[in-house]
């Protein structure tokens, strides 16, 4: 059994690598984009606000699975063609940006107007105020909710299965179907658990970092 496990491990790990790549790039893009969209959601310019509200509503109100299928199988019908991997990233970033934007919007709303006003009478610029005063406070507020989404993202990444990308779940499923054994799926479960454990650990550290002030 150990022999079999070492035999299929390389294919599982290469699947896991795909999962990690999607996870990583989605976070790297969707967190800053989420901050920008959340700023847009509270902007004074109404058309922008409506547009972004509509986008968030659409992304949160439909399944990520549908969005994936739409991007990869749907868009080519109107001539927009993505590679599998690009399609997956595009759909994930679009979807997670919307969730992050909602979380950040709540965080920004929790900052009292007095913080902006005291920065203003100290003559800080708008971007200095955001970067030095507001965003650190927002981040502290949103870390737990972002953490939930990060864990979700690891698991959601298995949805790329449906557009034929070779991720961790697919690697396990292929081995199980071929060799008629449960072991690959058990290993897949263990690898997901390891990944969520690492993410949880890092998130705890971030939370601790922000615990020095209230």
């Amino acid at each position: 059994m150990l022999h079999y496990a070492t035999e299929i491990l390389p294919s599982l790990l290469s699947g896991a690598w795909m999962t990690v790549r999607i996870f990583f790039w989605t976070l790297i893009a969707a967190i800053p984009l989420g901050i920008l969209v959340s700023l847009g959601l509270t902007a004074n310019f109404k058309p922008l606000r409506w547009l972004l509200k509509f986008y968030v509503w659409l992304m949160r109100g439909t399944p990520l699975l549908l969005q994936l299928i739409f991007v990869f199988y749907g868009l080519p019908i109107i001539g927009v063609i993505f590679q599998r991997y690009d399609a997956a990233l595009f759909a994930f970033i679009l979807n997670y940006t919307a969730y992050f934007a909602e979380i950040f919007r709540g965080g920004f709303q929790a900052i009292p107007n007095g913080q902006y006003e005291s920065a203003r009478v100290l003559r800080l610029t708008r971007s200095q105020t955001l970067l030095r005063i507001v965003i650190p406070q927002v981040v502290k507020i949103v870390v737990p909710s972002i953490g939930n989404e990060v864990i979700n993202l690891i698991k959601d990444s298995s949805l790329v299965y449906v557009i034929g990308l070779g991720d961790l779940l697919r690697a396990g499923n292929v081995a199980t179907a071929r060799d008629v054994t449960l072991l690959p799926l058990v290993l897949v479960g263990i690898i997901y658990l390891l990944m969520t454990a690492v993410a949880t650990f890092i998130l705890r550290r971030v939370e601790q970092h922000y615990r020095s002030w209230r």
């Binding site: 100290l122 003559r123 800080l124 030095r132 005063i133 650190p136 502290k140 002030w213 209230r214």
Partner: peptide, 23 residues
């Protein structure tokens, strides 16, 4: 301000020296 509006994420020293440095 009536409720002071110090910056909670900055130490006393940083609350005081931030604007003189940036502005």
């Amino acid at each position: 301000f009536q409720d002071f509006q110090l910056f909670p994420n900055l130490t006393v020293k940083d609350n005081i020296t931030l604007a003189p440095q940036l502005v």
